[in-house]
Design a protein around this nucleic acid. Structure first.
Lengths: 261, 261
DNA sequence: ATACTGTGTTTCAATATATGAACCGCTTGG
DNA sequence: CCAAGCGGTTCATATATTGAAACACAGTAT
């Protein structure tokens, strides 16, 4: 492994829980010599990747990442990058996918990538607001999103959209729990009759989902082979779009293919 | 110079004008061997600092900076970091400073750091909207901000706030031109009588100001020594806050102490 | 067809660079 | 008052970096 890569990996020492670290601490975490750690950090600081508080001597993330992030956003906006990821997966599973993002309490459809493989396909409009309790994307958002969101939905009314819409708070909680364990969610005709929805979370800051990536399929086409392919696609898209948004997966998150229930 | 720093400096090859670069191009720009450039870029790509388009083989900024920028923003928000910078300068010049940011067409005061050194000092409220044509911060924003902003202001009315408010579009243009050359602006009683305002730009994406940092002083205290100290402070604050916002100075920008006119 | 010029990538001996144990000065706490 | 922790420095040793040359490939002009 090159020296430069080892230097860059020091950046992974910093986290939301420990945004500031001392020299010896960093050396211990990465199992490198203190002198080496100092040289690494000096290199990072020279470029602005980290900065050091003159008083406390503690290191933290610097301003260079902000500059580079601005540059990236200008050159390759998040939405564009996310769309590219989705296109690739749609070409693999031949089913329509959409991405929705949480705007305060609402789940807003932001990107839709329709498959060209079938004449019968689901059409969703951009900017559509999805009900949190009645869609796979919504359930995923409740399970992995901000803590207060679930309570807020349970406190409100749970409108009925189809005969299969979950309107019982207890059963909704069960589904959220199951989703937390599986890492993904399947909604069977919960929003529109005859439509299966599969969704996986998109994470922002560690631990919290900022939205969901989903695949919607007309019921007759759903087979176990297709389900398996869709989950693979969602797993990849979830990872890559999370990365495109600068997010991080919680340490314990995994998308489990096999249904454990 | 350490290898790691040389590797990091490759990131400076990318710009808004050239967001995608090839291997040979990068090697030439940085005057390093092609093989070395490849190793450097591989290191950067392994960490996600850059990414390579599989088809075109071109490199661009990757997603790691987004992740690190999120982390930094969570740990040390821009506003907090900017306030720290301002505090340090206020302690040096013993005069009140404020930072204002452009929100679409309006210049909104966002941070105020009052000096404790004088009993007579200017008080400004946060969230105050500053007139673009009548304050030093406003003129700086017109000079270095978005292209259409100046035209928009000239098209509208220019309200009078004091007997010294600039209401003549031609003289306003002159002041903007002068500000463009000097890199800073002084407003004498243009907004409130008896108040001198000094301002320098804060840049976001290259070439465009996102706001201004200013120092406001009661007229009787303004001396040439103080003016000189204030300009030094503004120069430093302008640089550091621009950096804290992940911005970059235009290549030709410089804050000129000596008034050339 | 053929030679030319530009890619990106690989190899390997020469050498410049990174490494880590020991040490220093300092602060903290028992 | 000593011991243990910290951040930072030194320098001989060892290891990782370097760059010329050669490679395969893709256009482009001869």
């Amino acid at each position: 492994m090159g020296t430069a890569l080892k230097v860059l990996k020091l950046l992974d020492s910093f986290s939301l829980q420990q945004p500031e670290l001392g020299l010896s601490q960093i050396a211990r975490m990465n199992q490198i010599n203190k002198a080496t750690a100092l040289r690494y950090l000096t290199n990072l600081a020279d470029y602005g990747m980290v900065e050091q508080d003159p008083q406390s001597k503690l290191y933290s993330i610097g301003t260079a990442p902000l500059r580079l992030a601005n540059l990236r956003e200008a050159a390759k906006p998040r939405l564009t990058a996310a769309r590219i990821v989705m296109k690739a997966q749609v070409l693999k599973v031949h089913e329509t996918m959409h991405m929705s993002l949480l705007k305060s309490d609402q789940l807003q459809t932001t990107l839709v990538e329709e498959t060209q493989a079938h004449s019968v396909r689901i059409s969703i409009g951009t900017s559509e607001i999805l009900p949190l309790h009645a869609t796979a994307s919504g359930i995923v958002s409740l399970a992995f999103g901000p803590r207060n969101l679930l309570q807020h939905v349970l406190d409100g009314s749970l409108p009925t959209y189809s005969e299969h819409t979950l309107t019982n708070p207890d059963r909704l909680m069960d589904l959220v729990d199951e989703t937390l364990h599986k890492g993904w969610c399947e909604s069977v005709s919960g929003y529109e009759t005859g439509v299966h929805g599969f969704a996986a979370p998109i994470f922002g800051e560690e631990q919290t989902a900022i939205g969901a990536i989903a695949c919607v399929i007309p019921q007759p086409r759903v087979t176990s082979d297709l389900r398996s392919a869709v989950l693979d696609a969602l797993s990849i898209a979830s990872k890559e779009i999370t990365s495109v948004y600068g997010g991080q997966f919680p340490a314990n998150y995994r998308l489990n293919q096999l249904q454990t229930s």
